[in-house]
Design a protein around this nucleic acid. Structure first.
Length: 278
DNA sequence: AGACGTACCTGACCGC
DNA sequence: TGCGGTCAGGTACGTC
């Protein structure tokens, strides 16, 4: 499900609600998701206090008072929701009971998610985190930096931006959207984008991520915020999911262009405007 | 090394 | 109503 804006929205929703709370009990109702849960996860979580909730790319980090961190990735269909008294549902894999009687529930039908427990000072060495590239909303993402990351890359700009080892946190939606706002076709060779285009791309990436976070992320199927409500950014897509429809601010001749075009790249749909993106 | 296809899962939706 | 096919916010791994 979630790309950076969705994970960040969940994080922000959890900060006030669970920081400082104590875990009175954890129910672990599955062996694992994409990977097995750590041994005795329930026992390790019991009686821990939550110090802070942070994020790295699409990973949520729940930092505990024993210098360990609960690392969570939501895959395609994962939800992390705060509940009061609701009965456990299908695919509720982990239920964390807090001392204020609320429950943090990890639900993931497709089980592409991940949950691990890591020593906080060794987080950056974790298998899932150590290969991650730069944070798109951090200071590291500058036009020269992105240019050097893309330099010589023969793959498409779409695939390059999806590569978490370069820029970490973008997924299918926000790559399509950022390419639209920078006027670059998803088919362009990554290494062939001009300095000017890359500068536009940097701005577009930041703007689209920020705008989405402001709207609470994009809810298509599974994603909801930690309070169970939907995000709103899906109503503001310029091209994503809009095959045959006008792109945002469309002045193109729809009869002639057929509207937003969908192509498949590396098995994923890309949406773009053939008139505005070259 | 880097690029590509495929596997991992469930569920929703569409056409027959 | 049901069945098969297709598609879905992601990542990891094998193979060229």
């Amino acid at each position: 499900m979630p790309e950076l804006p969705e994970v960040e929205t969940i994080r922000r929703g959890l900060v006030k609600a669970i920081t400082g709370k104590r875990i009175v009990q954890a129910e672990v109702r599955a062996e694992g998701l994409r990977t097995r849960f750590p041994k005795n996860l329930a026992g390790c979580l019991k009686d821990r206090r939550i110090i802070s909730v942070t994020r790295r790319a699409k990973y949520l980090l729940i930092n505990l008072d024993n210098a360990e961190t609960l690392l969570i990735h939501l895959g395609m269909s994962g939800r992390l929701v705060l509940q009061k008294n609701e009965p456990a549902k299908k695919h509720d894999h982990i239920i964390i009971h807090l001392n204020d009687k609320s429950r943090l529930v990890l639900n993931d039908p497709r089980r592409f998610g991940l949950c691990d427990l890591v020593a906080t000072d060794k987080l950056s060495n974790h298998k899932s985190l150590r290969t991650l590239g730069i944070e798109p909303l951090g200071k590291e993402l500058t036009a020269p930096r992105l240019a050097s990351l893309l330099k010589g890359k023969k793959t498409s700009i779409k695939n390059a931006l999806m590569d978490q080892r370069l820029v970490a946190g973008l997924g299918n939606i926000y790559v399509c959207e950022a390419l639209f706002y920078s006027g670059i076709s998803p088919k362009r060779r990554a290494g062939n984008c001009s300095e000017q285009e890359i500068a536009k791309l940097v701005t577009a990436i930041r703007d689209v991520l920020r705008a989405s976070i402001k709207s609470g992320g994009s809810s298509l199927r599974d994603y909801v915020r930690s309070d169970g409500k939907k995000g709103g950014f899906q109503n503001r897509f310029a091209v994503y999911g809009r095959e045959g429809m006008p792109c945002k601010g469309c002045t193109c001749c729809i009869e002639k262009t057929g509207g937003v075009t969908r192509i498949s790249q590396s098995g994923r749909s890309s949406f773009y405007c053939r008139t505005k993106q070259k």
